[in-house]
Design a protein around this nucleic acid. Structure first.
Length: 576
DNA sequence: GCCGTTTTCGGCCCGACTGTTTTCAGTCG
């Protein structure tokens, strides 16, 4: 059992305890332990199995939770969880995902109506029954119905970070088998799309049967859906991600890779083009229609080449002009992860981060960076203990000293993620902002403004001369919340004029800006930074997701300021 | 339930908003 599953059992139980109105501090302990375990570098399972080790060495795990963890290892559950599940059905956990409903409301709904499914909840709203409960009314019924609709839309999809992790795990498992030459993800995961419905893995091997026999023995498989001669589909893990494994011979590996990478619209355009050449393209290869002779199939490059096209990077395969560009040899020279020289958005213990500046710097050095910016929150985020003017100035001085000493071995930029207030003004006085190397302006509150009010707010924020970057510019949370609406073109044009750059937030839950808006902004003359918004040193490893998103937005190295060496970076950021 | 101690019990990020009230509980971040 992996750490993520231990963490999941704890945090699910915490959710149920919240519905049961148990002690809030105890619930927090469960949550803290879950997050500590999830990020712990060693397998909890192994520590539990080792009589010479103590799980209490994990911060946040004391005697009580150590006992719980041992129980999970032995039987996959624990007493309090069983007790909670006897009181509330597991579907109650699903109800917590509906925005506008919290544990108290859910407890009341279950108690009064014995309803604990999303469908049942929807019926209650439609029949206007929710308003009969205390402190609930017509507005809430409407809000819940809207939330249910958006929840259904995102259900069954998974974040790129999650599918990528499973892809690596299963690839390594399969690649260990003799006779397996290559294992690679195809589909939307290979295209770097922010969410995926399933995971396609292609395996290059001459004999499919041993590969599929090995796959079905993968320990985290919960259900085998299909097992044929060349393909096997199974549900993996508690999350139930569907994984399709296809085994292919060398001569059609490229064709299969092309076919299963998609997207569907890109493939349709490609097949249409093939027909014009008297060719036909399928997952086995490119064939001459006249005599069914195979003309390509082993690699993608030869398939695209035979169609008169340059090879198209998977991130671009959305039929958004990439085929025309490939024909005219004007595909972009896409940004490379290796070009990134620094990370520009991260938090420390000063606010809601989990590590110190020194620990973040050390991890950044390990990633080969030349510089980082520390950008804690401003005071409007009181829950995060945001910085006020005095702390901002003190921090700027501290960073000046650190850079002078040079003992950290990496250049630090003093930064701030400054809240944009409802009226578009900055949460920190300008003279304090002036002390910093770099100010990111972000919206964290009042996200449900009308589009024109939000547009004015962002335009006003751009007026502050110290603002250099617009942080997570749409505010979306993938599978959870849409971005706030505003006139993007207008804001992008103004940002370009003022030299304020757009952040591409690499956090897998955000990936904000997303591809289509990146392209729209680039067309307006905007430039970009890519940053992880790390709250923990391990989050610095999320940079590849941001880079892939930038690639989906057709960006090249020169569009992204943190590909520049530190001196050039800071002067480019300041617009000179 | 964890942690840190002034070592065995008290503290644990909290402010803003919303919709429902008639002074505030519940949700969100």
């Amino acid at each position: 059992m992996e750490n993520a599953e231990y963490a999941r059992l704890l945090s699910e139980t915490a959710d149920l305890m919240e519905i049961a109105a148990e002690d809030g501090f105890r619930i927090r302990s469960y949550r803290n332990a879950a997050s500590a375990i999830e990020g712990y570098p060693e397998r909890v399972h192994d520590i539990l199995a080792n009589p010479e080790r103590q799980v209490t060495e994990i911060p946040g795990v004391g005697k009580g939770l150590a006992f719980v963890l041992h129980e999970i290892r032995e039987r996959g559950s624990f007493e309090r969880r069983d007790e909670m599940l006897a009181r509330y059905p597991p579907t109650a956990l699903e109800m917590l995902k509906i925005q506008g409903l919290g544990p108290k409301s859910i407890a009341a709904i279950i108690e009064h109506y014995r309803v604990s499914t999303i469908d049942g909840l929807e019926r209650l709203c439609r029949e206007q029954k929710l308003r009969e409960l205390p402190r609930m009314g017509a507005k809430l019924e409407e809000k819940v119905l809207r939330s249910i609709a958006s929840y259904r839309q995102s259900a069954g999809r998974f974040l790129l970070s999650f599918t990528s992790e499973v892809a690596v795990e299963i690839s390594e498992y399969l690649a260990a088998l003799p006779g397996v030459e290559r294992v690679e993800p195809a589909g939307s995961v290979r295209r770097g799309k922010e969410t995926a419905g399933d995971l396609d893995l292609l395996v290059l091997a001459s004999d499919p049967q041993p590969v599929l026999d090995h796959f079905v023995k993968f320990p985290r498989i919960s259900e085998i859906l299909v097992k044929g001669e060349n393909k096997c589909s199974a549900k993996v893990g508690l999350e139930g991600l569907q994984v399709d494994v296809r085994v292919l011979p060398r001569e059609s590996y490229g064709a299969a890779m092309q076919y299963f990478t998609g997207s569907k619209v890109h493939n349709v355009a490609l097949r249409t083009r093939a027909l014009k050449f008297g060719l036909s393209l399928n997952e086995y290869g490119l064939f001459r229609t006249s005599d069914n002779e195979r003309v390509a199939g082993e690699t993608e490059e030869e398939i695209y080449g035979k169609l008169g096209l340059d090879w198209v990077a998977p991130e671009l395969r959305e039929n958004q002009g990439e085929i025309e560009a490939a024909l005219e040899h004007r595909l972009p020279n896409l940004l490379d992860l290796k070009s990134i020289r620094g990370d520009l958005h991260m938090h420390t213990r000063e606010t809601d981060g989990r590590a110190t500046l020194e620990e973040m710097a050390e991890t950044a050095i390990g990633r080969g960076y030349e510089y980082i910016a520390i950008t804690d929150h401003s005071k409007a985020l009181a829950m995060a203990n945001g910085l006020d003017e005095a702390r901002v100035v003190a921090f700027a001085n501290q960073v000046r000293e650190l850079n002078k000493e040079g003992r950290l071995g990496i250049r630090i930029f003093s930064g701030l993620e400054c809240d944009i207030r409802r009226d578009g003004t900055m949460d920190i006085e300008w003279d304090a902002l002036a002390e910093l190397d770099l100010v990111i302006a972000s919206v964290h509150s009042h996200m449900n403004l009308e589009s024109n009010e939000m547009t004015d707010r962002l335009l006003k924020a751009l007026e502050c001369p110290h603002v250099r970057i617009l942080g997570h510019p749409t505010g979306r949370i993938l599978l959870h919340r849409e971005g706030y609406p505003y006139d993007f073109e207008r804001v992008a044009a103004e940002a370009a004029k003022r030299g304020v750059v757009f952040e591409i937030n690499a956090s897998p839950e955000r990936l904000d800006l997303h591809a289509s808006l990146i392209r729209a902004a680039k067309a307006k003359g905007c430039r970009f930074t890519i940053a992880t918004d790390a709250h923990h040193p391990r989050h610095l490893a999320n940079m590849p997701f941001g880079v892939r998103t930038a690639r989906r937005g057709w960006l090249e190295d020169r569009d992204v300021l943190n590909t520049l060496p530190s001196d050039e970076f800071i002067s480019a950021l300041r617009g000179h």
